[in-house]
Amino acid sequence: MPDELLTVLGADAEQNDKNAPELSERDLRTLYEALVLARILDEHCELLHDGGKLSFWVPSGVAAAVAAGSALALDDADWLYPSFRSAAAYWLRGGSVEQWVAQMLGSADDSQHGRQVAGHASLPDGRYVSVSGVLANHVQQAAGTALAMRLRGEPAAVLALLGAGSAAQAGFHSALELAARLALPLVLVARTDGHLDLASRAAGYGLGTQRVDGGDVLAVLKAARAARALAAGGRGAQLVEAIVHEGDAVDPAVRLRPFLEHRGLWDPGRQEDLQQRCHARIAAAIEVAESIGKPPAATMFDDVYAERPWMLQEQAEQLSRELETREENA
């Protein structure tokens, strides 16, 4: 039997208020703003893509609610292994919009030196690991980090975000096997369309599970927070199946807004102001990224090894000569 589907945001405002997870006004606003920002970033990305300036990106879409709710459920000491559609989580873990955009466009400000396509920002201070380009590999790594936490006796947890596609990968299953066997402080938040019934599969491995309405950011937060408490408290690994219907595309910010209004935290004036600020901030970040250009090409030879071995040194010199010749000929 699948778990009951957890929902907070329904039609009855009083009921919503009663069901909602405990949240300060400040956190509630931050959560809402992250969702709005994710939506507006999607709009800018679409324009950049249409203009030929962004070759690859994955929109946050409704999944922003899953990323944001999950990120806000964590303590500072916890780790987050994101997947694509996790921009909101990056910001909620302390990352800046400007760095996200710099990474997305591979500008000189990108701390990863233009090595990865959009959506792979890294944030070690926020214990937010750069998204892997390969499906489900990070699930196994999250289990490894959770194991390391356990060995060190740290009272924290690891949360990994993943999509339904990851559930077919071997790494997903070997991670569940290990996490269940060792009762690791691991929380997996998986987006599915509900047909997979991933929760039942995870329960088969021995994980605690909860199904949740993935477009409902407060429900995700509530479920992820409960799962996190169980996992960190020694009750074993947990899986939250966040059911998201990409097609219906109800903006999770729009769904959350009446909740804020009901608490007197929001009004149309604030909304307009927020949207303007988000647009302006993203537009400014894009402008900076486009105007400062790419990082120096020589950085491509850094970070392959702790120190550059001879062949990389030679190749760096070769490229430098090629670029000089190109400039002379230009």
Partner: peptide, 10 residues
């Protein structure tokens, strides 16, 4: 994969 996740943690 587990070893990678452990190494990232220190």
């Amino acid at each position: 994969g587990t070893a990678v996740g452990m190494a990232l943690y220190g």
